[in-house]
Design a protein around this nucleic acid. Structure first.
Length: 460
RNA sequence: GGCCGGAUGGCAGAGUGGUGAUGCAGAGGACUGCAAAUCCUCGUACAGCGGUUCGAUUCCGCUUCCGGCCUCCA
């Protein structure tokens, strides 16, 4: 009954004890809306969706506040808008909508708050002013920069010393920086680019300040969990941490930093130049969102995940087996309300061990198939359904999974099944097989059961 | 170059200092007019080399390979 999470800050699994069990705050770095979400974006969303569900389950839904931002101010957005001939506002609105659609298809719950950077400019400006007043920021060449020298623990999260950063620097350092590690809080913006009036003239914020300002606005100075992809550890989270600590006079920021591992596609890093970026949208055209979700959860969140068509295919088959185990009418549902299986919950509580949790769901499914007694089977079905819900699985009715809505009219199928049953009774097997073949050609597969019943299903 | 991960049976993927993962695929069997599903049985898997130990896949060191970060990135 105790959640353990790997904390990137301490580099070990720690017992998760919330600051206040009635007010748990989690902040996840959300998308920069300049393009459609790819499967790597989806991994982060789905993984932390499971964490959110677990926290809600453990502490009560009303006691968890999940904040996931939308970054709608960014140079990549400006470039993408220019390329496609849209305004920045048009582009970000469209991409935000697509993002919501895609994540919904993956059964990811909406965050409680979804702040947009563009709607928090005053908070960012106010925080930059505070940073300047505390001596952590300075004005140079029209830019406001954060002085990493003023952050005593800078590098703590990413384990980088400033000397190492300097040694490894592959980019030319802007000449106006006092320290090569200093980063932009606010930069000037010409009239043709998005910009806001500020004490330093018309400009726009640097990347990191938005998360510091928005987490403060929606969760307060200190909160429980800050999450995102491993690639964000440096520089994004390191910088965010430095800013927030300075702005809050060193009072604790996020207590847990949780990072999900990277994803490759068919063994290679996804990149535009390789042309192997797999968008969620594209995958949804060939597989149900739930299968994509299961595939994403089939590897532990901190491990690298290689996305392959084979993995997706296997996820579909695993779901077939699950939904069969839950299916009516052969297996009646609606038994006693069973709680989720302890062993499934325990797997999740141990640093979100979703692969182990899934294996335990599979053992439950096997137990259902083996169950001889109807009451026992119903009980197990309920338990499996409740357990799956912890991972955001089995949200649909089994019939919906097994029998696609695009199938031919079911009255006609039932009619043919009846005709075939008659043929079988009369041993006219050629006629019976003809009906089976006819339906199979339409994608409808008949299954005869030992008790004489015949059911049908479609395949994904 | 610096920092950080990973390497488990044909595949995917947990876990553990000494006994079982789990699923898919494969083999055999049960059931079955056919088909599908399901059930039963079957695998001396822990990258290599050293070390610690009564005993290491599990701990330590080195090597190799793969990946990430150091620049925008989930």
């Amino acid at each position: 009954m105790a959640i353990k999470l790997y904390n990137s800050l301490s580099r070990r699994k720690e017992l998760f004890a919330p600051r206040d069990p009635e007010r748990i705050g989690i902040y996840v770095c959300g998308p920069t809306v300049y393009d459609r979400a790819h499967i790597g974006n989806a991994r982060s969303v789905v993984v932390f969706d499971v964490l959110y569900r677990l926290l809600r389950e453990t502490f009560g839904p009303s006691h968890v506040r999940y904040v996931r931002n939308i970054t709608d101010i960014d140079d990549k957005i400006i470039a993408a808008a220019r390329e496609t001939g849209q305004s920045v506002a048009q582009l970000t609105r469209r991409m935000t909508r697509f993002f919501h659609e895609d994540m919904k298809a993956l059964d990811a719950l909406s965050p409680d708050v979804e702040p947009r950077a563009s709607e928090h400019i005053p908070q960012m400006i106010a925080m930059i002013e505070r940073l300047a007043a505390k001596g952590c920021a300075y004005l140079a060449d029209g830019h406001v920069l954060f002085a990493v020298g003023a952050a005593p623990k800078y590098g703590e999260l990413s384990r980088k010393s400033r000397a190492e950063l300097l040694a490894g620097a592959r980019v030319e350092v802007a000449p106006y920086k006092r320290d090569p590690g200093d980063f932009v809080l606010w930069k000037p913006s010409p009239a043709e680019l998005p910009g806001w009036e500020s004490p330093w003239g018309r400009g726009r914020p640097g990347w990191h300040i938005e998360c510091s300002a928005m987490s403060e606005a929606h969760l307060g100075e200190s909160f429980d969990i800050h999450a995102g992809g491993v690639d964000l550890i440096f520089p994004h989270h390191e910088n965010e941490l430095a800013q927030s600590l300075c702005a809050h006079d060193g009072r604790p920021f996020a207590r847990f930093w949780v990072h999900n591992g990277f994803l490759t596609a068919e063994g290679a890093k996804m990149s535009k130049s390789l042309g192997n970026i797999r968008t969620v949208r594209e995958l949804l055209e060939k597989a149900p969102g739930e299968a994509i979700r299961l595939a994403l959860l089939s590897t532990h969140y901190r491990d690298p995940l290689d996305w392959t068509d084979e993995k997706l295919r296997q996820a579909i088959e695993i779901l077939d087996r699950f939904y069969r185990a839950l299916d009516e009418p052969r297996f009646a549902r609606g038994g006693p309300g069973e709680a989720a299986a302890e062993e499934v919950r325990e797997a999740l509580e141990d640093d979100l061990n979703t692969p182990l949790a899934i294996a335990r769901l599979q053992s439950l499914a096997a137990a259902i198939y083996r169950a001889k007694e109807e009451g026992e089977r119903r009980k197990l079905q309920e338990r499996l359904a409740a357990s799956g819900r912890l991972l955001g699985l089995f949200g649909k009715d089994p019939g919906e999974w097994l029998r696609s809505a695009e199938a031919p009219q079911s009255p006609r199928i039932e009619e043919l099944i009846a005709l075939r049953a008659a043929a079988r009774r009369e041993k006219r097997f050629a006629d019976a097989d003809k009906i089976r073949a006819e339906l199979a050609a339409e994608g409808v597969f008949l299954e005869d059961h030992p008790d004489g019943a015949t059911t049908w299903r479609t395949r994904h």
